[in-house]
Design a protein around this nucleic acid. Structure first.
Length: 434
RNA sequence: UGCGGGGUAGCUCAACGGGGAGAGCGGGCGGCUGUUAACCGUCUGGUUGUGGGUUCGAGUCCCACCCCCGCAGCCA
């Protein structure tokens, strides 16, 4: 009896009789010899069907089978340097073959396609090797994030998706109806994290977040995944140390476990190999100097635009921290620097190679009176934030946290031009199909 | 939302100053025992985004609308 084998495990079963269940990815018809590229979700392997080696009906099936037909094949697994595939170098000398469904006219051919066509066929596009590789990296990025946090004292405490009020204003929120009350899809779990750290010390939430910003750029999605760690008894420095260690662990794990996928993506891994602590740290003021030298001066107090982030990140080989932004450019809950209240203890992490911001975070206000004052200055409804103010009345402590965007991180690690390929079914401006 | 580019065969694109709508790929059939997005022969392909207008005649010019892409703002 042949053994059921997954393609990624093929190297372990050379010389054995195997059965592979999958889909036809590609084919070369050489007459009496058929080369089938078969994928099973874990890789691609070449199956060689020679007319004299198989029953006549199996050979006829191999001759007629079309791209993405589902099939089960049996044969001898061989090491073969000429064989293409992922990882490649192995092939099955087929002895029998059964086609579950003959497919004709699969829309996504091996030739080039435009982005609109591919996005309309996202449900099928995910089968292509490039998308397959990206999703495998994404899964590893997510697992590495969880593994690192779980093993460094953080407890996973998820925050609600349906929320009653905005963290930072309501124009960028998706509104829905909650039994007659307005409710909004969460755009951050941070405020809830600030509650749970007082119960659990160090926490993180990990889930989808929603922004109704009409942003149409290569780094925005309406729905994206964010991990938000938050720590009690932590200042800005502690925050940056956690960020650099976490990001380093994620990058190193992908380099180690997803080498094949990065190869499929033709990612030059040398910039990724340089990622290790400490990351350079520059202040907002220093960043302004760099922008001035680069001929893109910015007025003090202005927040960076995408081109500014690119200029700064290209100056460094590793991800770079930019800290102490102007207080008025950041959210209401940011802790001002005591000696210099016009700047706050905020920090963004910019990925190298021009990828820009992947993390935003900082130290939160711990004084109840200052927090109340800021809520007033930002014209936020006090009642909605009563519980948040409460956190500073019952055992307040210095605390910090950050949000890391999963898709931007995946785009950087994979070396992608656009964030839409980093999530299985992207929600972009104007698209909610499929 | 602003600026710019675009919508022609299943896909990627071409069609000069307004005059017979084309190629490659894909798909079908035939050939080949080592192909790597194979190759060779042959067949198959159209409501030119939608609606209106100018004209003897519109893919091409004009008006309106729809959709897509890029950049910017905003952010992770």
């Amino acid at each position: 009896m042949p053994r059921d084998v997954r393609i990624e495990e093929a190297p372990k079963f050379v010389g054995e009789e195997v059965r592979i269940k999958g889909w036809l990815y590609g084919k070369v018809d050489k007459g009496k010899l058929q080369f089938l590229q078969v994928r099973d979700g874990t890789g691609i392997i070449q199956a060689v069907v020679f007319q004299n080696n198989v029953p006549p009906e199996a050979f006829e099936a191999a001759r007629q089978v079309g791209q993405e037909s589902s099939l089960i094949l049996e044969g001898t697994l061989k090491a073969e340097p000429r064989a293409p595939g992922i990882p490649g170098g192995y092939e099955v000398e087929v002895k029998d073959l059964k086609v579950l469904q003959f497919v004709q006219d699969y829309p996504i051919t091996p030739k080039e396609h435009g982005i609109e066509f591919l996005m309309d066929h996202r449900h099928l596009w995910l089968r292509s090797t490039r998308q397959w590789a990206i999703m495998r990296v994404r899964a590893t990025v997510i697992k590495a994030i969880r593994d690192w946090l779980d093993s460094h004292g953080f407890l996973n405490i998820d925050s609600p998706i349906l929320t009653p009020a905005a963290c930072e204003g309501t124009t960028t929120l998706f509104a829905t109806d909650y039994f007659g009350q307005p409710a909004y899809l969460s755009q951050s779990g941070q405020l809830y994290n600030e509650a749970t750290i007082m119960a659990f010390g160090k926490v993180y939430c990990f889930g989808p977040t929603f922004r109704a910003e009409k942003s149409r750029t290569r780094r925005h999605l309406m729905e994206f995944w964010m991990v938000e760690p938050e720590m009690a008894f932590a200042d800005l420095e502690d925050c940056m140390r956690v960020e650099e260690e976490l990001v380093t662990y994620v990058v190193q794990t992908v380099l180690r476990e997803r080498a094949n996928e990065l190869k499929v993506l033709e990612r030059d891994t040398s910039p990724l190999e340089k990622v290790e602590p400490p990351f350079p740290r520059i202040s907002y003021d220093e960043a302004l100097e760099i922008l001035k030298e680069a001929g893109e001066p910015l007025e003090w107090g202005e927040d960076f635009g995408a081109p500014h982030e690119t200029i700064i990140s290209l100056r460094f080989e590793k991800p770079v921290f930019v800290h102490h932004y102007p207080t008025k450019a950041k959210a209401f809950y940011m802790e001002p620097e005591p000696d210099r209240p016009e700047v706050c203890r905020s920090v963004d992490l910019l990925a190298p190679e021009g990828y820009g911001e992947i993390i935003g975070g900082g130290q939160r206000i711990s004084d109840p009176n200052l927090l109340e004052q800021r809520i007033k200055e930002h014209n936020l409804p006090r009642e909605a934030y009563q519980w948040y103010i409460d956190l500073r009345k019952f055992g307040t402590v210095p605390h910090s946290g950050f949000g890391l965007g999963v898709e931007r991180t995946v785009a950087w690690i994979c070396g992608l031009q656009h964030i839409r390929e980093t999530i299985p079914f992207p929600r972009t401006l104007g698209r909610i199909y499929p």
